[in-house]
Amino acid sequence: MSAKTKIVVLHMKEVIYTVVFLVLALVLGGILFLMFGPGHDKETAAQADGKYQPGVYSTSISLNDNTFDVQVTVDSDRIKSIELVNLSESTTAMFPLMEPALESLASQIYVNQSLDDIQYSEENKYTSMMLLDAIQTALKKAEL
């Protein structure tokens, strides 16, 4: 027989190192699968479904020692209502443009679902700016 016999010599250290590296590679692959696998997409999709944490959020405003609240109600993805709460009759009499300014701002916010590009008249400029700041503060509390 003319078969050429080859003798392969393996050192035990090399075999052990190879097995250890294979096990580490499998463990790393499993960890990467768990971190970035299909379950991860569900969590990010649930967070991406809405912009807001549903609820009622309010911000206080003080004018001449009178305090009242701007209350914003939101769903997970839209602003439902904006209203003045705890507004006394004396504050209404002293600042008669407060409620009409809020109604004008609220109607624009309901349509746009954003505080961007809000228009207000020059006669209500400072009142509108104060109300927009209060609404923005309340919406920041509601953001995810």
Rank of each mutant, 00 (worst) to 15 (best):
Leu24Lys: 03
Ser2Thr: 10
His40Trp: 06
Pro100Met: 09
Asn66Ala: 04
Lys140Glu: 12
Tyr17Pro: 05
Lys51Met: 06
Ala134Gly: 00
Asp117Thr: 10
Thr44Ala: 07
Pro38Ser: 07
Tyr110Arg: 04
Lys4Glu: 15
Lys4Cys: 14
Gly29Asp: 03
Phe95Val: 07
Glu122Leu: 11
Gly50Leu: 10
Leu131Ala: 01
Arg78Val: 06
Ser104Ile: 08
Pro100Leu: 13
Phe68Arg: 04
Glu122His: 09
Asp65Glu: 10
Phe33Trp: 05
Leu26Lys: 08
Lys80Tyr: 08
Lys42Thr: 08
Asp133Trp: 02
Leu87Val: 14
Thr5Trp: 14
Met94Ser: 14
Thr73Trp: 02
Val20Gly: 04
Ala134Cys: 00
Leu102Val: 00
Lys42Ala: 14
Thr73Glu: 08
Lys51Tyr: 10
Leu24Trp: 06
Tyr17Ser: 10
Met35Asn: 02
Ala45Met: 15
Ile16Thr: 09
Asp133Arg: 04
Thr92Asn: 12
Leu115Met: 13
Leu131Cys: 01
Ile109Pro: 01
Asn124Asp: 08
Glu99Asp: 12
Leu63Thr: 04
Gln136Gly: 12
Val85Gln: 07
Ser114Gly: 09
Gln113Ser: 09
Ala101Trp: 07
Val9Ser: 12
Thr127Asn: 06
Ile82Ala: 00
Thr5Tyr: 15
Asp41Asn: 15
Asp116Gln: 15
Thr59Arg: 12
Met98Arg: 09
Val72Gln: 00
Val70Lys: 01
Asp41His: 06
Val19Asn: 02
Lys4Tyr: 14
Glu43Cys: 10
Ala48His: 07
Ser62His: 06
Leu32Asp: 00
Leu105Phe: 10
Asp77Arg: 03
Glu143Ala: 03
Ser121Leu: 07
Lys141Val: 01
Ala134Arg: 00
Ser114Tyr: 02
Val23Phe: 08
Leu63Tyr: 12
Leu63Met: 04
Lys6Pro: 03
Leu26His: 06
Leu10Phe: 15
Arg78Ser: 05
Lys51Val: 10
Pro54Met: 13
Ser107Cys: 05
Thr59Asp: 02
Ala48Thr: 09
Leu97Gly: 06
Pro54Cys: 13
Gln71Leu: 11
Gly39Pro: 12
Met98His: 13
Thr127Arg: 02
Gln108Asp: 05
Val8Gln: 11
Phe95Ser: 00
Leu24Thr: 05
Val20Asn: 03
Val8Lys: 13
Ala138Tyr: 03
Ala106Lys: 04
Val20Cys: 03
Ala46Arg: 15
Leu22Met: 12
Tyr110Thr: 02
Val8Ala: 14
Asp116Gly: 14
Ser104Tyr: 01
Gln119Ser: 13
Leu26Gly: 09
Met94Ile: 02
Tyr17Ala: 07
Val111Tyr: 12
Ser2Cys: 09
Gln53Leu: 14
Thr137Cys: 02
Ser121Gln: 08
Asp65Val: 08
Tyr57Arg: 05
Ile82Arg: 00
Val20Ala: 09
Lys4Met: 10
Val8Ser: 09
Val8Arg: 07
